[in-house]
Simulated scan of single mutants.
Amino acid sequence: MRVLALDLGSKRIGVAVSDDGGTVATPIATLARHGDRPRLHREIAELVAEWDAGLLLLGLPIALDGSIGPAATAVLAERDELAAVVGVPIEVHDERMTTRIADGKLRERGDLDSRARRDLVDQVAAAVILQDWLDHGTAPGAPHGGATT
């Protein structure tokens, strides 16, 4: 089963997808947040359909102490809105430190300036979230840890 993952930021949304076997995550896009949230959710639903994803995975920004703060609460609310549009199950996965990990990976490349890293960091963060979820799951199609809708 292919999985589409999102890193829901306040300005940009990173998008990554798994292979059909559910073993490798690949960053694919960065969506800009605009003022039309229903349209943005339709764009996400179109990506789910385009990539033939059977599940949508959202990074959940849990605080370092494990608590659910305002950012995580916002993701959970958006999950509920997306559930009415995307037509596939949605899970959330702890995304602590993923943007920092993604930025570090991009810095290691050494061939990107700060603007190029900023343009890629959200989709790489989505891939880090997805790869962590894939690595901690069992067989493709089997239930993974994390909240579902």
Score class of each variant (00 low, 15 high):
residue 10 S to I: 14
residue 11 K to T: 08
residue 11 K to W: 11
residue 12 R to K: 07
residue 12 R to T: 04
residue 13 I to V: 11
residue 13 I to Q: 05
residue 13 I to R: 01
residue 13 I to Y: 03
residue 14 G to Y: 01
residue 14 G to I: 03
residue 16 A to S: 06
residue 17 V to L: 04
residue 18 S to E: 04
residue 18 S to F: 08
residue 20 D to H: 12
residue 20 D to F: 09
residue 21 G to M: 08
residue 23 T to F: 15
residue 25 A to K: 02
residue 26 T to L: 12
residue 27 P to A: 06
residue 27 P to D: 09
residue 28 I to V: 13
residue 28 I to H: 01
residue 32 A to K: 05
residue 32 A to C: 02
residue 36 D to A: 09
residue 37 R to T: 15
residue 38 P to R: 08
residue 38 P to D: 03
residue 39 R to K: 15
residue 40 L to E: 14
residue 41 H to F: 14
residue 43 E to I: 04
residue 44 I to G: 00
residue 44 I to R: 00
residue 46 E to G: 12
residue 46 E to C: 03
residue 46 E to L: 04
residue 47 L to M: 06
residue 48 V to Y: 06
residue 48 V to W: 08
residue 50 E to G: 12
residue 50 E to S: 13
residue 51 W to H: 15
residue 52 D to C: 07
residue 53 A to D: 12
residue 54 G to M: 04
residue 54 G to F: 00
residue 54 G to Y: 01
residue 55 L to D: 05
residue 56 L to M: 02
residue 56 L to F: 02
residue 56 L to A: 01
residue 57 L to C: 10
residue 57 L to H: 08
residue 59 G to T: 08
residue 61 P to F: 05
residue 61 P to Y: 01
residue 62 I to G: 03
residue 62 I to K: 09
residue 63 A to T: 14
residue 64 L to M: 15
residue 68 I to G: 06
residue 68 I to D: 09
residue 69 G to H: 04
residue 70 P to M: 08
residue 70 P to D: 13
residue 70 P to N: 10
residue 71 A to K: 07
residue 73 T to Y: 05
residue 73 T to G: 11
residue 74 A to D: 07
residue 74 A to M: 00
residue 75 V to M: 09
residue 75 V to G: 14
residue 77 A to L: 12
residue 77 A to P: 10
residue 79 R to Y: 07
residue 79 R to M: 14
residue 82 L to D: 03
residue 83 A to Q: 07
residue 83 A to H: 09
residue 84 A to I: 07
residue 85 V to P: 08
residue 87 G to V: 02
residue 88 V to F: 09
residue 88 V to N: 08
residue 89 P to A: 12
residue 90 I to Y: 06
residue 90 I to C: 07
residue 92 V to D: 06
residue 92 V to W: 00
residue 93 H to I: 11
residue 93 H to M: 12
residue 94 D to Q: 03
residue 94 D to N: 08
residue 96 R to M: 10
residue 99 T to D: 02
residue 100 R to I: 14
residue 101 I to D: 15
residue 102 A to H: 05
residue 104 G to T: 07
residue 104 G to F: 06
residue 106 L to F: 04
residue 108 E to N: 12
residue 108 E to P: 02
residue 110 G to F: 01
residue 112 L to Q: 01
residue 113 D to C: 06
residue 114 S to V: 07
residue 114 S to P: 00
residue 115 R to W: 02
residue 118 R to P: 00
residue 118 R to I: 09
residue 118 R to G: 04
residue 119 D to E: 12
residue 120 L to V: 01
residue 121 V to G: 00
residue 125 A to V: 02
residue 126 A to I: 10
residue 126 A to G: 15
residue 127 A to K: 06
residue 128 V to L: 09
residue 130 L to T: 05
residue 130 L to F: 00
residue 133 W to V: 10
residue 134 L to H: 06
residue 135 D to Q: 10
residue 136 H to A: 14
residue 138 T to R: 13
residue 138 T to L: 11
residue 140 P to Y: 00
residue 140 P to A: 00
residue 142 A to Q: 14
residue 142 A to G: 13
residue 143 P to I: 11
